Amino acid sequence: MRRITRIATVGIASAALALSATACGGKKSSDASSSPSESGQKSAAIAYDIGGRGDQSFNDAAYAGLKKAETDLKVKTAEAEPTDGEGEADKVQRLTELARKGNNPVIGVGFAYAPAIKKVAPKFPNTTFGIIDDTSVTGPNIANLVFNEEQGSYLAGVAAAKASKTGTVGFIGGVEVPLIKKFEAGFTQGVKDTNPNAKVLSAYLTQPPNFDGFAKPDLGKAAALGQLDAGGADVVYAAAGLAGSGAIEAASSKGKWAIGVDSDQYNQAGLAKYKDSILTSVTKDVEDSVFNLIKSVEDGKPTTGEIRYGLDKDGVGLADSNPKYKEMADVVAAVEKAKADIIAKKITVKTAP
C-alpha cells in the first residue's frame, strides 16, 4: 500500500501543518523549543511506523491511544504518516515539524525513529518525546515505551501447540531485527515447552535495511502459504505489522489457524472476513502506553526514561475474543497456567532464539 506523507490534526478540518518552516524563514528548531502550545491549546502527536495508520495492528493501536486522549483529555491531536523508502532525514523533518508546531508529547511509533529522536529531542528540551519499542536512545525528555513481547509470544506458542493437529506450526517475522526475534524466541519456547516434539517453521520476510516485510501483505501471504502447504503447518503466527494481514488471509484460505499480533486482530474491521480463522492475538497495550504518556504531560508531570509493560501489568497478553478459542478448554487452561508461571517467575522467557 503506497502512502503519501501527511501531517494532519485529528478531528479538526483545517489542521494541516505547514512543512519546511525553516526554509520559509521561520524559527530554527532551537528557537521554538521553549514555547510548546503557544496558542494555549493542548496538543499531542504521533508519527507512524512503516505501514502507517490502517495496518490493523501496531500503528492502529497507537492511534487508538491518541484518539482516547483526544476524547478523554480534550487535547488536540496530530498524526504524521511515513513515506515509501524514506530515510532518517525524513523522520527528522517530521518530528521537527510536529515539535515546532507545539505538539507535546511527540511520539515516534517504532524503533526506526530512534536516530531521529536522538537528533531532534535535544533541540526541544521542553517537549517530551516518546518512542515505542526502543531503549537505545535516552535523554531527560525522552520516554521509552517498551514491552515484554516475548512473554505474550510464549502464550501464543502454548496456544499454537495445544491447538495444532499436525504438530507443526509457523512463525513469520516481518524483518529480521532484534525486536522481532523476541517474538520468535518466546513463541518457539512456548511451543516446545508445551509439546517437545512439535516443529516450528520460522521465516523472515525481509532483511534490513529493507523493511518491506512490515508493509506488504503479499509477502506475508506467500510465506504463510509456504508453511501451510509445503511445511504442513496448521497454525501460523506472524509478527509483521501490515504484512501480517497477508498471513491471516492465507490461513483463512486454507481453513487453518492464524495468530494475530499487537492488536486484537479478531476485532479489526479490516480483517472481518478472516476473523473466524484468527485463533487469538498477542496484544501489546500500545494504546494505553500512548494515552498514559500524553496524560502525564497534560498533568504537568511528564514521564521519561524506560516504561516497561509486561504480563504482570497486563501490558502484553493473549486475546480471547474468538468464541472458538474460549471453547478450547485445554488451550485456555494451558495458557492461563503459563501466564501465572511467568508472572510468578517460575518460567523465564528467552528474548533471543
Rank of each mutant, 00 (worst) to 15 (best):
A8S: 10
T9Q: 12
G11V: 13
I12A: 09
A13M: 10
A13K: 14
A16C: 05
A18P: 07
S20I: 00
S20M: 05
A21M: 12
A21R: 12
C24A: 12
C24E: 09
C24I: 02
K27G: 06
S29V: 10
A32W: 14
S34K: 11
S39Y: 13
G40H: 10
Q41C: 05
A45I: 05
G52C: 01
G52W: 01
R53P: 03
Q56N: 15
A61M: 15
Y63W: 11
G65L: 04
L66Q: 07
K67L: 14
K68H: 09
A69I: 12
T71Q: 11
A78Y: 05
A80W: 03
E81Y: 02
P82Y: 00
T83W: 03
D84M: 00
D84N: 00
R94H: 00
K101T: 15
G108A: 05
V109N: 01
V109G: 01
A116P: 08
K119P: 00
K119T: 07
K119F: 04
A121C: 08
F124Q: 05
F124P: 06
F124W: 10
G130Y: 04
I132A: 10
D133L: 01
S136F: 03
P140I: 07
F147P: 01
N148D: 06
E149D: 15
S153T: 11
S153V: 10
S153N: 08
S153R: 04
Y154E: 10
L155E: 02
K162Q: 13
T166D: 04
V169K: 05
F171S: 04
V175A: 12
P178S: 02
K182T: 03
F187Q: 03
K192P: 13
D193M: 07
T194R: 13
A198C: 04
K199M: 04
K199A: 09
V200N: 08
Y204P: 09
Y204T: 13
Y204Q: 06
P208N: 05
A215H: 02
K216N: 11
K216G: 03
G220N: 05
K221T: 02
A222P: 08
L225K: 13
Q227R: 11
A230H: 07
G231C: 07
D234M: 04
D234K: 04
V236N: 07
A240R: 03
G241V: 00
L242F: 14
L242G: 00
G246L: 08
G246R: 08
E249N: 12
A250K: 07
A251C: 15
G255M: 08
G255H: 11
A258G: 11
D262P: 13
Y266D: 08
Q268R: 15
Q268N: 13
K275F: 06
D276A: 12
D276E: 14
I278C: 09
T280A: 15
D285E: 01
F291I: 02
L293E: 12
E298P: 09
G300D: 12
K301V: 12
K301N: 13
I307H: 12
I307L: 08
Y309W: 15
Y309P: 01
D314A: 09
G315T: 00
G317L: 03
L318P: 10
K324A: 15
A329Y: 10
D330M: 09
D330Y: 10
V331E: 08
A334W: 06
E336V: 04
I342D: 02
T351Q: 14
A352Q: 13
P353F: 06
